[in-house]
Simulated assay, not measured.
Amino acid sequence: MERGLKLSDKSDLLKDPGRYRRLVGHLIYLTVSRPNITYSVHVLSRFMHQPRQHHMEAALRVVRYLKGAPGQGLFFSSNNDLKLRAYCDSDWAGCPLTRRSTSGYCVFLGPSLISWRSKRQKTVSLSSAEAEYRAMTGTCCELTWLRYLLTDLGLAHHEPTSLYCDNKAALHIAANPVFHERTRHIEMDCHYIRDKIQDGFIVTKYVSSAHQLADILTKPLGKETFVPMVRKLEVQDIHSPT
């Protein structure tokens, strides 16, 4: 998507909405192996009930991107230390229609990306720290399930899982659980994260926004930022020259 693009409901309705719905349905299946289009498809799927002309234009832009690199896909290296690490991020009040934030996370097993998600939050967040905390909670739930799954497969993780976040306010609240009026809306999230830290389940770490890999799942980025992020997600093109 174009950088800073905010899709709304201010253009003409499509005469054939079924064509748009079928196209987005196909794109949803592609997100299973193409994490680089997850955010775009997530946004496009919000308008399935009343698609408009500029929604179709944005969807066709995704199709042109896919046709330009048909050999792209996830690469899983054989050299793997099998350690979990996760990145979480949120775009505060990013939806222009509801002012809800978009949460995104990506989980790596060694160098390989194994889980990712982009989802609009269920409630309106009153601050960026609140939005980040909700993103951290969703990531923790995913990490809990993955650790249990890996244990069943004989890959028990006894060390804390690194959770990278680029919001210092959220990290400070996690380290110092002092509740006041600004945090009363997220006390359950705060307690959940805090319990996981005390149990040695996760360890939160700061990462700069320039190295926040989950950024690609929360907002449209420019080409100079998007392309390096795709490489860091271990999405490679088998047709590109070595």
Rank of each mutant, 00 (worst) to 15 (best):
L66W: 04
K122Q: 15
I37T: 12
C190P: 00
G154C: 10
R64V: 02
L7E: 09
T137V: 13
D16H: 00
L217Q: 11
H49F: 02
T98G: 06
S208Q: 07
Q236D: 00
K168T: 15
K196L: 15
G68V: 09
L113W: 07
R52S: 04
K219V: 10
E142T: 01
V41Q: 03
Y105K: 06
D89L: 14
E132K: 15
E181S: 14
D237W: 07
H55K: 02
E224C: 03
S125H: 10
L60I: 01
H55M: 01
T242A: 14
L27Q: 06
L14V: 00
P228S: 06
M136S: 06
K205A: 10
W116A: 08
K6Q: 15
R99I: 02
V124K: 09
G200P: 09
S101L: 12
R231T: 05
P228N: 11
R21K: 07
Y20C: 01
E142Y: 00
Y39K: 08
W116T: 09
L44R: 05
P51T: 04
E57R: 01
A214I: 12
L163D: 03
R46C: 05
V43S: 04
F179A: 14
Y148D: 13
D199P: 01
V207K: 02
C165L: 11
E224R: 13
L82I: 05
L23V: 01
P228W: 03
D81R: 04
R184E: 14
M48D: 00
R99Q: 13
Y192I: 04
Y20G: 01
S78V: 07
G4V: 04
R147L: 08
C141Y: 05
V203C: 10
P220H: 08
S208R: 09
P35H: 08
R85Q: 14
L66A: 11
L217V: 09
G138F: 02
D152I: 03
H191I: 03
S45Y: 01
R100F: 07
S209G: 14
L146R: 07
I37A: 11
S162T: 06
L155A: 02
H185G: 02
G110H: 07
V43P: 01
H26K: 08
L60P: 00
G71A: 04
E187D: 09
L30G: 06
R120E: 13
A210D: 13
S127F: 10
H172K: 10
S90H: 05
N80E: 04
A175S: 15
S208N: 14
E181T: 13
T183N: 03
G94V: 12
Y133S: 08
R184W: 00
I186H: 07
L113E: 10
D81Y: 04
M136D: 04
S90Y: 09
V107R: 07
S90M: 05
P70R: 11
D166G: 12
N176Y: 12
S78N: 12
S77M: 06
S40M: 11
V235M: 12
H26T: 01
S209D: 03
T144A: 09
K119E: 07
T225K: 14
Y39G: 08
P51Y: 00
N167L: 07
A156R: 11
G18W: 00
